[in-house]
Write a protein that binds this DNA or RNA. Structure first.
Lengths: 156, 156
DNA sequence: TGGTGTTTTAGAACTATTATAATTATAGAC
DNA sequence: GTCTATAATTATAATAGTTCTAAAACACCA
């Protein structure tokens, strides 16, 4: 198995799942590592394709079930695709996404840069919004929409 | 405040459409005014329901066609719903959206407040992101996700 | 190892959206 | 106003993405 997952050995994922009250199964392991190893946020079907190609049969329904379980337990998040289908992301914090208009792909702004932007948001204005609207902001999603001027990092 | 469409009489919309090279039709007028009068960003089907109730028969396909035409001509934008279906918005600038977790509804942060936040984004960090990634940001979408602490402004 | 509750699975069902092809309406020329 | 070319509307069929169902396989714990 040639995968670019860094340190996601079975034991690590097992205890991660355990910590989130998720049963460990071969399929969930496969889905989670596949998701976590993606630089671009994949759709359920893209994950299914990828998994079908590489290993053990795994059904599309299971991909959906697993993604739902991951989201519910806080190990992944579901992102709205501008288009038809949903995209998934193994990370769970606020962070910034880049949507490349040319390809429709959705990927992350590198952590450090994204954090820098988030850290420099005007907190007072956010507070004002919360107070004025009577709304409690629990999470934030920022999407930068545009095009690569140099080259696309990766095809979707 | 029943409807917040300010000055959307037929003549105004006619010239607006004209300016955007869109033929004026009874149906497009209906869809556009219905969309523009919504405080919450509706799905295609919600618009269809609303229009079916009030007036002249208009088909669901036309609602989709018209929304697509409006988006293409820059008179509306399509927003990704967290869930299954897309939502539409008659405004077209960058602006902030509020997603109410409790109801799933999507609405605007009042213009003034939203603008204040956008004006206070750290431009230097945005520039750094563009330069580092070789990406040209043409639009931005910010979604504040959370719950109303006082009361929901309106049911979706 | 055996029992119990959970997960997986193939396929059916469902929902949102887009395509098709015939009909009808619009805008502009006369 | 009428005519004509072109574009929009419509009902319906088709497709795509996702969820549901019920049966079989599995994980966990004793």
């Amino acid at each position: 198995m040639h995968q670019n997952n860094h340190n996601l050995d079975e034991a690590a994922v097992h205890s991660l799942f355990c910590a989130h009250s998720l049963r460990f199964t071969r399929q969930r392991f496969a889905v989670y590592t596949a998701l976590a190893s993606e630089k671009v946020h994949p759709t359920a079907d893209q994950l299914f394709q990828k998994l079908s190609r590489s290993e053990s049969g795994i059904s599309l329904a299971t991909v959906y079930n697993t993604l739902e379980a991951l989201v519910k337990s806080g190990l992944a998040q579901k992102l709205a695709d501008g288009g038809t289908s949903a995209r998934y992301d193994a990370a769970v914090d606020d962070h910034l996404h880049i949507r490349d208009c040319a390809t429709g792909s959705l990927s992350d702004v590198p952590e450090a840069l994204g954090q820098k932007l988030l850290d420099n948001l005007p907190q007072d204005v956010l507070k004002e919004i919360e107070d004025t609207l009577g709304f409690r902001i629990s999470r934030m999603q920022i999407e930068l929409i545009g095009e690569y001027t140099r080259e696309a990092v990766e095809v979707n």
